[in-house]
């Protein structure tokens, strides 16, 4: 006797009403119910999102006719070839180096905060650390950039501090350096870097904190019992165990920096980052194929990055 027959006759009578009948119907066909449950989201994401992504990818294989400025809808790799022109390659190298530096710096700045928050902070301090990470994480993105515009402005607080300390000469000397310097902090790569660091820092702190919290304290006791100095304990025990957290955080800081185009537009030089290049190409330049080809760059870089991160076990720390 089949299961259906059992429930139908021996245990319960059929339910009454349309809803009851429907309920029984789905009970007998769980696969159909699952299908109906996922169908709306699947349709939405499949059509709206993946459809758009594929359309974008297709367009990167088209090209822009240099003379007429019309998009030629024929398969070609010419647009990808344009990525390797000196000016475009510059943009890619600039963005990737910025992402790498921001990631490295945020790991260094985040570690002490995450470590103290996870291992030492109690009571009132724990609350302060929690708010210190959560408030900047959830505060509006644009407002945070705005705050840095206030800080970095020529008449702003940072210049004022340097003035009060009689260190204006130091700031001027720093700003006269090539590449990282500029007319003022708000139009230099240093300014862009500071804002990136500030905005993505919480994404680095949280996974490190989670991974440090999971380090068993008896391992640390064991290390010091066996005669390790605090430094040795840190490098041989804590750091390797916290590494997956750092890698997990770096996924966020790296990927977010790669794709951002608002921050370098507001604080920074006129030289473009990948995100800005995409925006300019699809907007004023009207070169959607090149814009599409540019978006493929961060996708490939992040794909490689995620693959490496997965091998280092970063996904267990998320």
């Amino acid at each position: 006797m089949s299961v259906e027959a059992l429930t139908a006759s021996a245990i319960l009578p059929n339910r009454r009403g349309t809803l009851g009948a429907l309920s029984d119907y789905f009970w007998r066909r769980p696969k159909l119910l699952v299908f109906l449950l996922v169908a709306p989201a699947l349709l939405w994401l499949g059509i709206v999102y993946v459809g758009s992504l594929i359309a974008l990818l297709l367009q990167s294989f088209y090209s822009l006719d240099d003379f007429s400025g019309v998009i030629v809808e024929e398969f070609t790799l010419k647009t990808y070839g344009e990525l390797f022109k000196a000016q475009n390659l510059d943009i890619i190298v600039r963005t990737v180096s910025m992402a790498a530096i921001v990631t490295l710096a945020s790991a260094i700045v985040a570690f002490p905060i995450a470590y103290v928050a996870a291992r030492y902070a109690r009571g009132k301090w724990k609350a302060l650390f929690y708010l210190g990470v959560m408030l900047p994480l959830w505060a509006s993105y644009l407002v945070k950039i705005y705050a840095w515009k206030l800080i970095l402005a020529k008449e702003g607080i940072l210049n004022w501090v340097f003035e009060q300390l009689h260190l204006t000469w130091l700031l001027d000397a720093y700003l006269s350096l090539p590449i990282i310097g500029g007319n003022s902090l708000s139009v230099s790569f240093t300014g862009t870097f500071l804002v990136f660091l500030y905005i993505w820092l919480p994404y680095m702190i949280l996974p490190i904190q989670a991974s440090v919290e999971r380090v068993p304290t008896n391992l640390l006791d064991a290390a010091s019992d066996l005669g390790a100095t605090p430094m040795q304990t840190f490098w041989k025990v804590i750091f390797p165990l916290a590494l997956p957290g750092i890698v997990a955080g770096s996924i966020f800081t790296f990927s977010l920096t790669l794709g951002d185009y608002i921050i370098p537009q507001i604080v920074g030089t006129s030289r473009l980052f990948i995100g800005q290049a995409v925006y300019v190409q699809q907007g004023t330049a009207g070169n959607i194929p090149l814009a599409a080809a540019f978006t493929v760059v961060p996708i490939i870089i992040m794909g490689l990055y995620l693959w490496m991160a997965k091998r280092m076990g970063a996904f267990d720390a998320l």
Binding site: L56, G275, Y279, P298
Partner: peptide, 16 residues
């Protein structure tokens, strides 16, 4: 949609 940078979601939708 959240793993890929917002700009990719944005431009994909726009071109679609």
């Amino acid at each position: 949609p959240i793993a890929l940078p917002g700009i990719i979601t944005g431009i994909a939708l726009r071109s679609a």
